[in-house]
């Protein structure tokens, strides 16, 4: 193994350890607003497809409540979860456009 490669590996390891050891930055209001906007947009798309999930609505409400209370870490986490849920429901609605036929009694 060349010296350059060993050096690069060490550098990567140091960077990785530094990143892991560094305290996570607390989420700001701007982070929350951005995460909430993204979640809301995905939820709106799911509703447009007539396939909103109840956990999306409740998680979005939890994000708003945490954001209004100034707990932006919790608010961002909830908003991201709501976005993931909404995106899963969009995926479901899209794939079911054809997939439903597999279940049909013929």
């Amino acid at each position: 193994m060349s010296t350059t490669m060993i050096g690069m590996r060490s550098l990567a390891l140091v960077l990785l350890l530094t990143a892991a050891a560094a305290p996570a930055r607390a989420a700001s209001e701007a982070d929350y607003k951005a995460a909430y906007a993204a979640a809301e947009a995905a939820a709106r798309e799911a509703a447009g497809l007539r396939n909103q999930w109840t956990p999306t609505v409740s998680t979005l409400a939890a994000a708003k409540k945490a954001g209004d209370g100034g707990d932006f870490d919790r608010a961002v986490a909830a908003a991201k979860e709501a976005e993931a849920l909404a995106k899963a429901s969009i995926f479901q609605a899209t794939s079911e456009k054809e997939a439903w036929k597999a279940m049909e009694i013929r």
């Binding site: 479901q92 079911e96 036929k101 049909e104």
Partner: peptide, 13 residues
């Protein structure tokens, strides 16, 4: 026959 909801159930399920 369309699956919906987080449980991924259709009426037919």
């Amino acid at each position: 026959y369309t699956r919906r909801g987080q449980m991924n159930f259709s009426c037919a399920s």
